[in-house]
Computed example of a mutant assay.
Amino acid sequence: MKHVNSEIIPSLSLDLGKEETSEATAQHWLIKLGYALKEACKGMYFNGHDQDDVVKYCAKFLTSFLGYERLYYTYSDMELELIPPVIWPGEKLHVPIFHDESIFHSNDLQ
């Protein structure tokens, strides 16, 4: 609440005098503005991967990424034999590097 009263209210050129905004008032206005009260567990990270703008960006990225597919090694379906790419002059071999965004530490569940 200190941030609301010392930063946000003055930045909006509002003068409340000696009055301060209570936590209940701030929560009420946040709900009216479309925010939802959620309880986040300690250590959890929510990245909004299902939001419309993120979904659109992922689709655009995947389309772009698949355009480079012919520039990296692939494997045959059954024998898993390495299939080298056909690289034309001026092109470079692409090596996709994948990672999992999950992070775990030892003793997390204690």
Rank of each mutant, 00 (worst) to 15 (best):
M1V: 07
M1K: 12
M1I: 06
H3W: 05
S6V: 03
E7G: 13
P10S: 09
S13K: 05
S13N: 08
L14G: 10
L14Q: 12
K18T: 05
K18V: 02
K18E: 08
K18R: 04
E19K: 01
E20W: 03
E20D: 04
S22A: 03
E23M: 08
E23W: 09
E23F: 08
A26I: 14
W29Q: 14
L30R: 13
Y35D: 10
A36P: 04
E39I: 00
A40T: 06
C41G: 10
G43W: 08
M44R: 05
N47L: 11
G48M: 13
G48T: 14
G48Q: 11
H49W: 04
H49I: 06
D50I: 10
D50Y: 11
D53N: 14
V54Q: 07
V54M: 03
V54N: 05
V54D: 03
V55P: 09
K56Q: 02
K60Y: 05
F61Q: 05
L62P: 07
L66K: 13
G67Q: 07
Y68V: 14
E69I: 00
E69A: 02
Y73D: 04
T74K: 03
D77V: 02
M78I: 11
E79F: 02
L80I: 08
E81A: 06
E81Q: 09
E81T: 09
P85R: 03
I87H: 05
G90D: 11
V95Y: 02
V95M: 02
F98Q: 05
F98P: 01
H99V: 11
I103P: 06
H105L: 13
S106N: 10
S106Y: 15
L109C: 15
L109T: 13
L109G: 13
Q110P: 14
